[in-house]
Simulated assay, not measured.
Amino acid sequence: MNTYETRLRAREDVADGTMAFHFEKPSGFSFQPGQAIDLILADPGPTADSHVARHTFSIVSAPFQDEVVIATRMRDSAYKHALKSLPIGAAAGLEGPSGSLTLHRDRGRPAVLVAGGIGITPFISMLRHAAREQLPQQLLLLYSNRRPEDAAFLAELNQLERKNRNFRLIATMTQAAKSNRRWEGETGPIDEDRVRTACSNLSAPVFYLAGPPGMVEGIRQSLNDAGINDEDIRSEEFFGY
């Protein structure tokens, strides 16, 4: 993989405890929607070892955009503290792209995207790209969070659904009663019954899973139990994000 130099353009809150970081897109850098980068900080913090000077992040931005954007839960770690305090204009290293969680090329087969929490990041890139390119492929996203406040990019996803007639969003909250916002959408976890109902009108879909390891493994097992072969299931587990 190639390593590039980039600089921080901007940062923003995209959900409670979740921030997005906008970096310059280096000359010659290209990627496919769903891929990731390693972001390398020159100074990861006084208590950090050299091996934590880098972190892998899915790319939120789409290939047609002129920046590289990542988003992450702001956990209490030396790396995350250093990232949050990085001055605008500061240099960083970008290594990549990496990863194979990319949309299949058979546009006749639908794609079912299942995201838990910050696992939404690779799918944002895919959905932006699909809307821009007007892909004929049917896309279904099942997106689970505790509360609406925790759901990064939810407003944009609603806009993308209105923009792309081939995209359908099902957002669900597992702790909606604890929200300070009114929620009239679905509630409860993404389980086998919810997936089966959502996919009932789709022919031979390919499944993409991204989120906490427990959620990813549980959905994969449910799909296997329903007769879905492993070659039609692609996944990425998000540890400690």
Rank of each mutant, 00 (worst) to 15 (best):
A90P: 12
S58G: 13
V114L: 14
N164C: 12
R146S: 10
P205D: 10
R75E: 11
I190Q: 01
D16F: 04
D191V: 03
M74Q: 13
L223T: 10
L94V: 15
C199A: 10
P122E: 02
S30V: 14
L101M: 11
P63L: 03
P87V: 07
G188Y: 10
L113A: 07
R128L: 14
A42N: 11
G34H: 09
S61R: 09
N158G: 14
P63F: 07
L202V: 14
I124Y: 05
A62D: 09
S235M: 15
G108W: 03
Q35L: 12
Y241K: 03
A210I: 06
M173C: 09
Q159W: 05
G117L: 05
K25T: 11
T172W: 00
I124E: 03
L101R: 07
S77Q: 05
Q65P: 10
A176E: 12
L127E: 07
G214S: 11
W183P: 03
S222C: 02
P97S: 10
L169G: 09
G185I: 02
H22E: 05
R194L: 15
V112S: 02
S30A: 13
S77E: 10
S50Y: 03
L139F: 15
R181A: 05
M74V: 14
E149C: 07
P205W: 08
S61F: 09
T6S: 11
R196Q: 11
T6E: 01
E231N: 13
G96L: 10
R194G: 07
R146D: 06
V112Y: 03
G89N: 12
A130P: 12
G108F: 03
